[in-house]
Design a protein around this nucleic acid. Structure first.
Length: 633
DNA sequence: TTAATTGCCC
């Protein structure tokens, strides 16, 4: 009698707990879910061989994104009770939480145990492949579904399409899209995201206009793509349309996407607009992610003080927010500020591997060799962080910049990780700085093996030869590039003046105020020469002359080419279109050349201007004749 | 259950 009452009670409680756990899963309230789990453990209810409490727990942890707890619960489910749904739930959890490798492992384990995947499992499979960018793996999904006779639901087709689109196989993605008998908004949005990424923003717009209906994600993809491609005006128009036609507030994911696009393209006008919008709609506390995206945006737009102001006002700051602030300062060459801020950070957040990438790169950009080495040595023993390739790359960079190339090379040869392209490339750049031809040559050989398509290193090496007076070697290397039909990507620079973006390419004559710009340029060069500037034609990688012998006309032509570099044009325009002593902010798509760097240092002194130039990978802050990069970049 | 999601070495 007693036994049966307990049984009834127990079964009642199972249902009770299960519905509570489902509520936690729906609301993603991990704290309540964990309390329920603890209660279950205390009452011994979770020891039941019946798996449905486990299922509910697994589902709850998976929905809350707590992968480790989800795995623990999963492992406790007896093998005989683990069904397709359990495996799929955990796979989806791994995939969503950026652990696609684990998701794929689980997929294999599942089949090893003889459990059959269903179409939902395949959605998770495609998703994991798409996050990994692994087409070879993803390609097997399609035949796998056909073999098992699984239905191509709208969701499954979307997931397959997304995998193809993320891996750049647009033809395959479109084939799936065309063959779908029914399409959802998501189907259109997935194709749209693929098109703007691989086929350009204009083709994306054509598709966007064709869409039968649009959700906020489609709008966001389209606008962010405009911003990233520098279509400032179109982006602003479309953002206005989006707000009007959706009649709702932009959510934090949309705001982050837009800010990230602004940071990438240096569109500070749009970034500032988003900031104002955020302040208007967020009555209480600013969303942590939006705050972090703002810090990053301001830092990458050259406004490091504005970034710091936002950072200071954030009430809660996690490790990501701190990292954004630290790497922003590092990019700006403010090494000492990074070290100071780091000591404050320790009290508030646990530093992670990214923190140390920022710290080490700050040390390297500011020549703080000893501190950098100390941080690297402390990584494991003090902070419990496994050094990754990025950390080794920073240390190699640190030693290389300081001219300690033998130590840097020794480190590369004895480190436990295989060196990658970035690391060897930075070592080659150090060789170039210190004129180490021999090491440079052997590094170039290695780099060609790793990535035969990247020709940047040939340019670097040929410059080294030219600077060392080895004209023949330099020319033969240039000839190799010429034979392969390699041309340097066209350089272009943007400057924001009066709420508008003005773009200049090398030798550009299309700007409405071109005459004034070139007049200013001449005047600038004249004053530069008076201050001791000598055009550095050695930094010109492809000279006008093919033979190597130079006559006076050719030299003049080379100099003219040098003077019309896009950053010099943008600078001239900035000087004539802003009030005296206003700081100038310029964005350049490539790395700034030696000649421009030297010239701009002088300009900052002669014209008493602060000039901030964002190049492809860092900032140059020119002030009173010197640059924050200490002449190494 | 799928789509846009803050920080990263040259």
């Amino acid at each position: 009698m007693r036994w049966s009452t307990d049984g009834v009670l127990a079964s009642l409680s199972y249902h009770y707990y299960r519905s509570l756990l489902r509520a936690c899963a729906r609301g993603a309230s991990l704290a309540d879910g964990e309390k329920l789990h603890a209660t279950l453990l205390k009452n011994g209810l979770s020891a039941s061989p019946d798996s449905f409490i486990h299922n509910a727990l697994l589902h709850m942890y998976a929905m809350c994104g707590t992968t480790s707890s989800a795995r623990l619960v999963f492992d406790q489910i007896p093998l005989t009770h683990r069904d397709t749904v359990d495996w799929t739930t955990l796979m989806g959890c791994y995939s969503r939480n950026r652990m696609p490798h684990d998701a794929l492992h689980l997929f294999l384990d599942m089949q090893g145990e003889g459990v059959q995947p269903d179409e939902v499992t395949m959605v998770c499979f495609f998703n994991a492949c798409s996050r990994l960018g692994d087409v070879m793996c993803g390609l097997q999904g399609h035949p796998c579904m056909i073999k098992r006779g699984l239905p191509f639901t709208v969701t499954a087709s979307n997931a397959a399409m997304d995998m193809y689109a993320k891996c750049g196989r647009m033809a395959d993605a479109r084939r799936v899209f065309d063959e779908m008998s029914e399409r959802s908004v998501v189907s259109w949005t997935v194709i749209l995201a693929g098109v703007v990424k691989w086929e350009g923003v204009e083709n994306g717009r054509i598709l966007f206009d064709e869409m039968p209906e649009r959700n906020e994600i489609a709008w966001t993809v389209m606008i962010a793509s405009y911003v990233e491609s520098g279509f400032h005006r179109e982006a602003m128009w479309l953002l206005g349309d989006m707000i009007l036609s959706l009649c709702l507030e932009l959510n934090h994911v949309t705001l982050c996407s837009l800010l990230s696009a602004c940071a990438q393209s240096g569109d500070m006008m749009m970034g500032r607009w988003v900031h104002v919008y955020v302040l208007k709609i967020m009555d209480k506390e600013m969303n942590l992610m939006v705050g972090t995206a703002l810090v990053d945006m301001y830092a990458k737009c050259g406004r490091i003080e504005a970034a710091y102001r936002v950072f200071k006002w954030m009430l809660h700051r996690n490790v990501v927010a701190w990292n954004a602030m630290l790497s922003g300062l590092a990019m700006h060459g403010q090494g000492i500020a990074v070290l100071e801020l780091f000591s404050q950070m320790i009290a508030e957040a646990q530093p992670d591997d990214v923190t140390f990438v920022a710290l080490l790169s700050a040390c390297s950009h500011s020549g703080l060799v000893d501190q950098g080495q100390q941080f690297f040595h402390d990584l494991g023993p003090v902070y419990g962080i496994m050094p990754k390739i990025e950390h080794y790359a920073c240390l190699v960079d640190l030693l290389g910049r300081a001219g300690r190339l033998e130590e840097a090379e020794a480190l590369v040869r004895k480190m436990p990780i295989l060196p990658n392209e970035v690391l060897l490339g930075s070592l080659l750049a150090s060789c170039s700085l210190h004129g180490k031809l021999q090491l440079g040559e052997s590094l170039l050989q290695e780099l060609v093996q790793i990535n035969p398509l990247n020709t940047e290193y040939h340019f670097l090496m040929s410059n080294m030869y030219a600077l060392a007076g080895k004209r023949d070697e330099a020319d033969s290397l240039r000839l190799v590039l010429k034979k392969r039909g390699v041309r340097k990507a066209p350089g272009s620079s943007c400057i924001h003046v009066g709420g508008q973006v003005h773009q200049f390419s090398a030798g550009d004559k299309s700007h409405p105020r071109t005459q004034e710009v070139y007049f200013m340029l001449d005047e600038m060069i004249r004053r530069l020469r008076l201050a001791g500037y000598v055009p550095n034609t050695a930094s010109q990688v492809f000279s006008v002359s093919e033979s190597g012998s130079h006559n006076a006309d050719e030299r003049e032509e080379e100099e003219q080419l040098l003077f019309s570099h896009s950053e010099k044009l943008a600078l001239s325009f900035g000087l004539i279109s802003t009030r005296p002593s206003a700081p100038l902010h310029i964005f350049k798509n490539l790395r700034i050349c030696q000649d421009c760097h030297f010239a701009i240092k002088l300009v900052s002194d002669i014209y008493r201007r602060e000039i901030v130039i964002r190049d492809r990978n860092r900032f140059h802050c020119f002030k009173q004749g010197s640059c924050s990069c200490s002449d190494y970049w």
